[in-house]
Simulated scan of single mutants.
Amino acid sequence: MSQLSVIKEHIEITPGICGGKPRITGHRIKVQDIAIWHERMGMSPDEIVFQYPSITLSDVYAALAYYHDHLEKIRQQIQEDEAFARELQAKHPSLVQQKLKDMHGREN
């Protein structure tokens, strides 16, 4: 079995599911999620499986291999998603934060 077929066994891309981004087969956990948890949050593959027991250690390693094979594209997708989230947050501030700000303003 070649490396490509092993990764295809664990990673799928389906238009309309998770924005067509690569994800763990049969799950909504994206390759970029695994990459973020591993690189930015410092989670080991074992910790990721512990937190998400519906996926396997093989799934995590396949996702990391896929990520490293497509590094630039996935990092760009992560940056685009983060920019979109910041933009959305700026346009639609948290109602809880707004209420706290209003309450805090009335106390002074």
Score class of each variant (00 low, 15 high):
Ser2Glu: 11
Gln3Pro: 11
Ile7Ser: 11
Ile7Thr: 15
Lys8Val: 01
Glu9Gln: 14
His10Pro: 12
His10Phe: 12
Ile11Cys: 13
Ile11Arg: 09
Glu12Tyr: 00
Glu12His: 03
Thr14Arg: 08
Thr14Met: 09
Pro15Asn: 00
Pro15Gln: 00
Gly16Asn: 08
Gly16Gln: 04
Gly16Ser: 02
Ile17Arg: 14
Cys18Asp: 04
Gly19Asn: 13
Arg23Thr: 00
Arg23Ile: 02
Ile24Gln: 02
Thr25His: 09
Thr25Phe: 01
Gly26Ser: 11
Gly26His: 02
Arg28Asp: 08
Ile29Met: 15
Lys30Ala: 12
Gln32Trp: 15
Asp33Cys: 14
Ile34Gly: 06
Ala35Asp: 12
Glu39Cys: 08
Ser44Asp: 01
Asp46His: 07
Glu47Asn: 04
Phe50Pro: 00
Phe50Val: 01
Gln51Ala: 14
Tyr52Gly: 00
Tyr52Trp: 04
Pro53Ser: 09
Ser54Met: 07
Ser54Val: 08
Ser54Ala: 03
Thr56Pro: 03
Ser58Ala: 15
Ser58Arg: 13
Asp59Val: 08
Asp59Gln: 05
Val60Ala: 10
Val60Phe: 05
Ala62Ser: 15
Ala63Glu: 05
Ala63Trp: 03
Ala63Arg: 09
Ala63Cys: 15
Leu64Gly: 09
Ala65Cys: 12
Ala65Trp: 04
Ala65Leu: 10
Tyr66Gln: 08
Tyr67Thr: 04
Tyr67Pro: 10
His68Thr: 07
Asp69Ser: 13
Asp69Arg: 12
Leu71Trp: 10
Lys73Ile: 12
Lys73Gln: 14
Lys73Ala: 15
Ile74His: 03
Ile74Gly: 02
Ile74Thr: 09
Arg75Glu: 15
Gln76His: 12
Gln77Val: 01
Ile78Lys: 10
Gln79Pro: 00
Glu80Pro: 02
Glu80Cys: 06
Asp81Arg: 15
Asp81Trp: 08
Asp81Phe: 10
Glu82Val: 06
Glu82Ile: 06
Glu82Leu: 10
Ala83Ser: 15
Phe84Glu: 15
Ala85Arg: 14
Arg86Val: 09
Arg86Trp: 09
Leu88Asn: 04
Gln89Cys: 00
Ala90Met: 05
His92Arg: 03
Pro93Tyr: 03
Leu95Ile: 03
Leu95Val: 08
Val96Ala: 11
Val96Gln: 06
Val96Leu: 13
Gln98Glu: 11
Lys101Phe: 07
Lys101Ser: 09
Lys101Asn: 07
Asp102His: 01
Asp102Tyr: 02
Asp102Val: 02
Met103Thr: 11
Met103Glu: 13
His104Phe: 08
His104Ser: 10
Gly105Ile: 00
Arg106Leu: 07
Arg106Glu: 09
Glu107Ile: 11
